[in-house]
Each structure stands twice: as C-alpha cells, then as structure tokens.
Write a protein that binds this DNA or RNA. Sequence first.
DNA 1: ATCCTGCACA
DNA 2: TGTGCCGGAT
Length: 275
Amino acid sequence: MTAGLAAWYAAGGRHDLPWRRTRDPWAVLVSEVMLQQTPVARVLPRWSRFLLRWPTPESCAAASLDEVLREWEGLGYPRRAAALWRSAAMIAASGWPADEAGLQRLPGVGPYTARALLCLAFHRPSAPARDVNLGRVAARCYLGVETAPGARLDAALEAHRPAAMAWRDYTLALFDVGALLCRRRSAACQRCPLAPGCASRARLAEGVEAPPRKQAPYPGSMRQLRGAVLRAMLARPDQSVAELEAAVAGVPAAARPGAVVEALAGLRRDGLLAT
DNA sequence: ATCCTGCACA
DNA sequence: TGTGCCGGAT
C-alpha cells in the first residue's frame, strides 16, 4: 500500500536539491555522475560550480581534460570526470542518444544512470532507475527480503508504483525514503509512508543487521597513491618521475619501489593522463 | 570503521 | 560474481 507515498514526498521530499529543479539533460547527467559514490552534501556546491563553468556539453568538450580534472578535485573517483568529459564530446558531436542502450554507450553511463536520464530528464522512463536505495526499499518493502535479483526488484518497483504518481516523482520519492528513512543499517518505520504495507516491517522492528560492506582500506592503498600522483601531475604536468616521487613521498604506498611509475601507468591507461 | 543516488573491468 | 576506483564526513 503506497497511498501515503505521494503525500509524504510532497511534504518531506528533498525538493530543494537543485538538480531536481531542472530537466536539462546535461545538468542531470552531471549530477548523476557526481552522485555516483559521492554523498549529496558534498556534491551540492560542486554541481553548481561545474555547470556555471560548463553549462553545456559543447562548452565542456571545448575544455581540456586537465581543466575538467582540476574542477573535479576533492570529489573522488576522477575517472568519472574523464568519462564525463568524453561523454560531453560525444554528445556535442552526435547529439543525445535516444534510448537506454544508446545512453549506456556514453562512457561512465551504466544501467542506473541511463535509466535516470530517461526518467528525470527525458520523461521517457523505460525501466526503474534502480540505484542501491531503490533496490533496498523494493527488496524490503515489496519483497520482504534484504536483497533480490535485479529483475525481481525492477518488476516489484513497477508493480507497486501508485497510479497517481508519475515515474519521476515515484523515483525521487523512493530515493528519499531510502536516503532519509529506510537506511541500510537503520529503518525509521515510524515515519515511513510505506510502513503500512511493508513486507519487512516486523523484521525491521527487531533491528537491522546489515552485513558490513567489504571495502578495502583507503590509507596505504594504490587508490590513495593514484590520487596523490594525479594531483601532483595536474599541479605540474611537466615534472620528472623523480620530482613526482618526491612530491608524493608522504603517501604510504609510494614507499614501495616502482609504485609511482605503476600509478602513472594506471592513470594513463584509464585516460586520466594524456602523456 | 563505515558510508556514500555506480561503472567498468577481470 | 567479484574487485578496484577516490576522498571527505560521521
């Protein structure tokens, strides 16, 4: 039973998020890419700044990769910036792809982002834009489990959409349920509009025991070194390997012989460094 | 220590 | 199906 979802969303949804106030596909794409593994609060100031600088795919494509990477600094996963820049060039050259398969051919655009663009920017939802939040809410509320195959989750999301809610509002409302109420390790069922028909309500009342998400420690990792090497190269693109090694000497992984050269090679392979 | 509107590899 | 990618915040 999702009769209360629309009312809850109207009153308690995050309507102030600026990327929800536009349907310009470029602005939406920038927001979706930034939000891939970066929290909303950290994206907020950076999204506005990015679009002020490059309001269109054409303007972004005209910039250099270095400029885009420098603008991205601090957001993490700079490969997303490189992919966005390449997508901008493709869009500037050939226009926007018309369907889900075409959108997924844009670098950095996977199943989720393609569907999000169709739903949030193009008003042509093809299938649920199922990120981890929608997946979790659907699994718990509609299926009564913690996880389920993607196809089942998509089917459940489609089946439970209130007829009165457009796909865009339904999707955004479930984003907010997942982000504000039905968190991975805690569920605020008392305030949840889906609670009356939730298949996991009784189980969630006992407390949520979420298995810890396996994630390699960042300090000492190659990722940390890559980040340091990229920052140093953006600051001074023409420096030698020896100078570079000195610049990143404080990073733990840089102590291993050959690690800096390895990081450089990786950055080049991933298209983050030209030379 | 764990999280965060994923994507692209193996 | 699993794994690496980044970094700031809680």
